Amino acid sequence: MKTPQAFVLPLLAGAALLPWPVAAQGSTPVVLTVASAPAGVRPALVRDEVAFADPIREAQRTLPQAKKRFLAGLAHGDQFLLVVRVMATDTSFRQASARVLGWHGNRVQALLLPEAAGSASSAEPVPVSFPETAVVDWTLRRASGREEGNYVGRYLDTACQLESLPFR
């Protein structure tokens, strides 16, 4: 398995530091797909798609089955989370988690969660609707703490661990 460590972590570090002016302005966040993204953001989205091609492909391959399980009903305390890309500036985006409320055909209704649980801001979740094609990753978080899915997240965790290994 190839791990583009030199490319992955700088890309993530830059994406994590991006501001999210949309929330500060109080307008609705824009959930992106490569097809619907403004021209200034498209190159960054394409680079992200290439860097995480395998885990994104696996997340999208398994999403229909996960969707069926969600629609059949989750146990009390379980949460179904999707990772999407949201406009950050005219030329950048950030990844965001959205807690799924429902599905209407191929459109997802969700609450876009605040950027970081430990941040000083008291931002509230924002209702959003977006096409399934905007989904980058999914996680079924059980009340017991067990997680299913999270393909991109686990890939990133592994890449960070590999990068922190000492050279010999």
Rank of each mutant, 00 (worst) to 15 (best):
P55H: 10
G149F: 07
A123V: 05
S122M: 04
L12F: 08
P21Y: 13
I56N: 06
G149C: 05
A53C: 11
V46G: 06
V126Q: 08
W20I: 00
L111C: 03
P43S: 04
A120V: 11
V100Q: 04
S164E: 12
V31E: 02
V30T: 13
G14A: 05
P131C: 02
Q109M: 13
A37P: 05
R154Q: 15
K2F: 11
A72E: 15
L162S: 08
A6F: 10
V86K: 03
A143N: 10
V84N: 08
V8Y: 04
A72M: 07
Y155C: 10
E49G: 08
D137G: 07
V34R: 12
E115L: 13
F70T: 05
L113Y: 02
R146L: 08
G73D: 11
A117Y: 04
D78N: 08
F93E: 00
R107M: 11
D48C: 08
P127N: 04
D90F: 00
E148F: 14
P10I: 12
Q65M: 09
V31T: 10
P10K: 07
L18E: 15
A6W: 09
E132F: 01
A117C: 02
V152K: 03
H76M: 07
P43G: 07
F93D: 01
A110M: 12
A134S: 11
S92D: 14
T3K: 12
E115H: 14
Q161S: 11
L12T: 01
T62C: 07
Y155F: 15
